[in-house]
């Protein structure tokens, strides 16, 4: 965007939702703003800018990561998944469960919630209520949809269990 990469250094690349992009912004720009303002992938939200609220959660090589504090330059060669790339046609078990349970109110935090929950279910396919709470405590919802978030994660986990068996 503003700083021209040095002629001698090849432009760094980053993969986002299976597509490769040049990192053509200052390398210390947090991934969040590269996604939102450069690529116009606005599903990932700005909430606090300090990794306190989880609204900006994306996956870096499959791991839930707060995109508002991680510089995009540090992610060269890595693979990022945002809410827009979580599934082909919004059929991830969590997305389906979110629909079934009717989780969102304003919806602003929900992409971050879903991305964090997806990361949880990858490492723990049948989390207990306690494990859900522990995993999800970094994600704030001011509307107070927490009861439904917990339920939807359980619904999705049950669905995943069925798919596996």
């Amino acid at each position: 965007m503003s700083e021209n990469p040095s002629i001698n250094t090849p432009t760094k690349k980053i993969t986002i939702n299976d597509r490769e992009y040049d990192i053509d912004v200052p390398e210390n720009m947090p991934l969040l703003w590269f996604l939102r303002d450069r690529l116009e992938l606005t599903g990932t939200k700005f909430g606090c800018g300090k990794a306190l609220c989880g609204a900006c959660t994306v996956h870096v090589d499959g791991e839930a990561t707060r995109s508002c504090v991680i510089p995009v330059g540090a992610l060269a060669g890595r693979s990022i998944t945002t809410i827009e790339g979580l599934s082909d046609s919004d059929e991830h078990p969590l997305q389906k469960a979110w629909l079934e349970v009717g989780v969102p109110q304003c919806g602003y935090c929900q992409a971050g919630q879903i991305m964090n929950a997806a990361s949880l279910l990858k490492r723990n396919t049948s989390p207990s209520e306690q494990e859900i709470e522990t995993a999800m405590q970094g994600n704030i919802c001011r509307c107070g949809t927490y009861q439904r978030i917990k339920k939807a994660i359980s619904v999705a986990a049950d669905e995943l269990a069925k798919e596996v068996s």
Binding site: L41, T42, G43, I83, E84, W98, L99, G102, P104, G107
Partner: peptide, 10 residues
């Protein structure tokens, strides 16, 4: 609008 929310399109 839940469908739009869960896909990040709202």
């Amino acid at each position: 609008d839940v469908g739009m929310v869960i896909s990040g399109k709202r």
